[in-house]
Amino acid sequence: MDHATPFARVFLLGLFAVIVGMVLWAQSGKRFFIRRIPGLSAIDEAVGRSAEMGRPMLASFGLGGLNAQEGVITLQALAIVSDVAEAAARFGNRVIVPVRIPALMPVAEEALREAYTRGGRPEAFQLDDLMFLSDRQFAYAAGVSGLINREKVASIFLFGTFFAEALIIAENGNRVGAVQVAGTPSTTQVPFFIAACDYVLIGDEFYAATAYLTRQPTLLGAIVGQDIGKAVLLFFILLGVVLTALNVPLVVNLFADQAVPWAEMLRPVAPAAGAGG
């Protein structure tokens, strides 16, 4: 869709209003509930184990850049990694953060500094542990593999956008016996994290992670807003399926790429025209 159709305007503004509304409601003091997400309780456990063994941890906020597709994922991942770093600071642990996108170095540096401050040990932050490794996907993977083996890391946290290198990193982690927690919206890599990691966040558990970890009202509100959005989608899906069975293509037309005139919304499509087009 190049520009919004009339329905897209209404629908997207509706979603916008719901999400912002819930965030504002939460900020004004409403306490929202969010269910337990198993993988996340493992973070403290993994950090604790590192501290016990006296070995460092490694945390990556993925290989995503700042573009439209990956930008929001990467920033969300950085938020989770900051929470990991905060826990590490509390335990007095060293956390190595290898970075792929040069432009994200300053953001990561500020985020980690702040995390160590919140963890109560601003002096423990080592700039050398936040390292730009390589912007090349597999050079990054080679570098991370080397780090994992040489530093004998005790726990590994992988959050954000990942591609084929996911398994290289996770298998090396598995080989040195590290506890690994991973979460990614890159659905194609989830199976490999499942095979090699101890805890894995699936799908939009990733987006719920920061809300669950920080209990920030803003984030909790946004999760509730997303849930309402999902309910709306389910409604449209069920309505649409029933109407399709009755040969009324209303919902298909509403979600069309090009605006369908209101008068033609209900006109049955010729059979075998198929969806999309």
Partner: peptide, 9 residues
């Protein structure tokens, strides 16, 4: 939107 269309159709 296309994903939603593909489900409802």
């Amino acid at each position: 939107f296309p994903l939603i269309r593909s489900v409802v159709s």
